[in-house]
């Protein structure tokens, strides 16, 4: 069952649209904020609330890069792998994060702290290379000085 709080948040957005279905992405994002990811069970509950079939809602959920249909860690790292960051040496950042965290892309550290995902251009190309941790953008990750800087940033997310 959706909790009272979850329902309240989704219901607050329903008047923005003429149909319940249109609130599907909002509902998924809200539930993901509360529950970390969208399990089959959560998907079913959301679909029922929106009066859709689970298959209909799943066709939306699986379409988006940032709706997680698998468990993720407490913090999600999105590292830009697009063109400007690549030109500025972003590969070094991607490699460092992989080896430092000891995981591959799409994986979560064994302590459940971080999930590492490459992501498309974060719209901060003039400050490349960049990454986001949860809702925060971190810019100008100079590949030469990055290890210290990145260690320091990661320590802010226990």
């Amino acid at each position: 069952m959706l909790t009272f709080e979850e329902k309240k948040e989704i219901e607050a957005l329903l008047p923005n649209y003429p149909t319940r279905q249109a609130a599907g992405i909002d509902a998924l994002v809200i539930l993901q904020r509360h529950r970390g990811w969208i399990s089959d069970e959560t998907l079913g509950q959301a679909a029922e609330f929106l009066r859709m079939t689970p298959a209909e809602l799943d066709s939306v959920a699986t379409f988006y890069n940032l709706i997680f249909r698998k468990p993720v860690g407490r913090h999600v790292i999105l590292v830009c792998d697009s063109v400007s960051c690549w030109v500025m040496g972003g590969d070094t950042i991607l490699d460092y994060l992989k080896s430092h965290l000891g995981i591959g892309f799409g994986e979560t550290t064994p302590d459940g702290r971080f999930t590492l995902l490459p992501h498309v251009c974060l719209g901060a190309c003039d400050k490349a290379p960049v990454m986001m941790i949860d809702d925060d953008l971190h810019v100008e990750l100079d590949p030469e000085t990055s290890p210290d800087r990145i260690d320091q940033l990661l320590s802010l997310y226990p």
Binding site: T19, Q21, A22, I25, V29, L50, S59, V60, N65
Partner: peptide, 27 residues
């Protein structure tokens, strides 16, 4: 005026895919 936050997929920027996205359909 409503703010709709998407969930990250480049094709949603294409005008007609965006309409499907806003309607809550596969975009």
């Amino acid at each position: 005026l409503h703010l709709h936050e998407s969930a990250g997929r480049y094709i949603c920027g294409e005008e007609t895919a965006l309409l499907n996205a806003l309607e809550g359909k596969r975009a």
